[in-house]
């Protein structure tokens, strides 16, 4: 409680302090940690995110495209698209090199689609960690 109050009361760090680390952490999984001189943690995060993403691709998962419609469809497709996008360069390379798969029926493809989103969400955790390190909230 005391720590939370102290963190809330602390002045906001300037954007120039954390933006490069956050941007790099998004574009290259683990990159923010490398920039902040935490190479071991960066390497573990990079490997974890990349392996989950590659497993998703090898299971022929589909990358979500933003799609409107009813509320549930909008939440699933936009949420999935944002999740995919959070994987950074892995997402862009997949699209640019043509590894993006069409949506196919089958449980393995479905697992793959979930793995691709999960990789992005794991990278989101890494981005938040890089932000906290850059702003001095964490060692």
């Amino acid at each position: 409680m005391t720590e939370n109050s102290a963190a809330a009361a602390a002045p906001a760090a300037s954007i120039g302090k954390w933006a490069p680390a956050v941007l790099l952490a998004w574009l290259v999984p683990g990159g923010g940690h490398f920039l902040l001189k935490r190479p071991a943690r960066g390497a573990i995060l990079a490997a974890s995110v990349a392996i989950v993403f590659l497993l998703g691709l090898m299971m022929r998962g589909t990358l979500f495209q933003p799609e409107g419609g009813d509320l549930l469809t909008t939440v699933i497709y936009y949420g999935g698209f944002i999740g995919d996008l959070l994987a950074g360069i892995l997402y862009f390379l997949t699209v640019w090199l043509g590894y993006s798969q069409p949506d196919m029926p089958g449980h393995v493809h479905d697992y793959g689609t979930k793995f691709l989103v999960a990789a992005g969400l794991l990278n989101l955790l890494a981005i938040m960690d890089a932000y906290e390190i850059a702003t001095g909230r964490k060692d």
Binding site: R41, M59, Y111, F115, D129
Partner: peptide, 29 residues
């Protein structure tokens, strides 16, 4: 790109493994 066919159990274990690694790395000191 090689194709991989994982069972639900294998996929769950791999997801659990890598998620646990990331949670461990980012949460503690």
């Amino acid at each position: 790109m090689p194709k991989m066919n994982l069972s639900h159990f294998e996929a769950s274990i791999l997801f659990a493994l890598f998620t646990s690694v990331v949670l461990g790395v980012i949460t503690k000191r």
